[in-house]
Design a binder for these strands. Structure first.
Lengths: 218, 218
DNA sequence: ATGACCATCTTGACAGTGCTAAGTTACACT
DNA sequence: AGTGTAACTTAGCACTGTCAAGATGGTCAT
């Protein structure tokens, strides 16, 4: 089949020549396809097909394939940040509990959106400066993670916290590395049983972040 | 240029019809190309071209493109394991220092072979059972990491280590997650300055793993 | 030594991909 | 009403992974 315009049953009939909202639809389709396959198998043509437009249409909204992937990744960072904030606000108790809640949200997000998460951290952008929105969203998300730990540091949770800024930075970086690494290992299937429930993942994340809590509070 | 057989200057002249050692050469070429580009831009045809054989030749040694990538990843796990063991054996002092040395080797390997490292953890294998060698090498590498921490646990380093097996597992997983996450963030450029030397990376890894040491020894 | 076998390598071909060039449509503004 | 332009279209190029079918030449039984 060499005709790209064979409309799949999922694509709605289009009434006008101009689509009107194609950019958003392309991202939605991409997001949906990422639930089933990984980013490397995500083709512009398949997305266009699914959206019911021609194969060249996406180029009027994204510079190239990488541009669309970067936009998807940026959306992912936004969603991740919101999930983190939501869980952090719901957490009661010490700043450390809040920090742990953020870590759990992080790991859960990766568990529930593995392909999307991997795309966000694929790091395979030809040039970072080409995707300012992605950088903005990523930085904002890291900022949320960091400021949570900063608050932890500012509070009196750490005993004898007079080691200076270097250690504080190392702790923040360690915390981030921990949850990121756990998330990666988890979605690679290197950890836990083959089929895990979200509750099991949450328990695992809780256990592992407790180790970090020992390091911080010790 | 639609001719796949245009031999690049790097490919040696072949005297006999049969290559004799093509599988190894294909892997070497793949390894070399991975130093410059990421795995998503690694094509079977380019590798074949570089090796001086036709485009279909690789299919006599690998089931498909994924098979070759899996073999490259397996080699990577072997190299990583050896690097870990080398540094661990060179480390003197407490088991904790040995553990830290392994973590540093892990991070340094990722820093020096970012594309290869990402391929190893890309997790984008259509079916895990299709690549038994990759699984073997990966498991052996994780085993080396885990047993190092196991030795740490067995020694008297931890004070009051009577919390049971669950905690020990959480600690091992935490240690692994920490170095893996740090490695990933590092090669994504999310950490440190744009251009870092190996010595700077080693210092960073040393600092961050010290946080873990606190958690373990605390 | 001869012949058969077969792993290895070859060319040819097909469908899929990203992307560009050059047309077409229709909205929006003067 | 007329014109400009953003959003869409088809046509086509170079590249990719993969298979089928033929060419080669080493190996091993006779």
């Amino acid at each position: 089949m060499s005709d790209d315009r064979t409309r799949p049953p999922t694509a709605p009939e289009r009434t006008s020549y101009h689509h009107g909202d194609l950019r958003r639809v392309l991202l939605e389709v991409g997001h949906r396809l990422l639930e089933e396959t990984d980013a490397s198998h995500l083709s512009l043509r398949a997305i266009a097909r699914e959206a019911g437009v021609s194969r060249a249409a996406p180029y009027h909204h994204f510079a190239d394939r990488e541009g669309l992937l970067a936009a998807l990744a940026a959306d992912g960072f936004r969603d991740l940040r919101h999930a983190m904030i939501r869980r952090a606000d719901a957490a009661v108790g010490s700043p450390l509990a809040r920090m742990q809640a953020i870590g759990i949200a992080y790991v859960l997000f990766a568990f529930e959106n593995p392909h999307h998460y991997r795309l966000m951290f694929s790091g395979e952008w030809s040039d970072r400066d080409r995707h300012p929105e992605l950088n903005r969203e990523a930085d904002a998300t890291y900022g949320a993670l960091g400021s949570a730990l900063g608050g932890l540091e500012a509070s009196g949770t750490r005993k004898g916290g007079r080691q200076g800024k270097g250690l504080a930075q190392a702790l923040a970086l360690g915390a981030w590395s921990l949850v990121h690494g756990l998330a990666m290992l988890l979605i690679d299937g290197r950890v836990g049983e083959a089929e895990m429930t979200a509750a099991e993942v949450e328990g695992l994340a809780r256990e592992v972040t407790r180790v970090l809590g020992r390091g911080l509070a010790g």
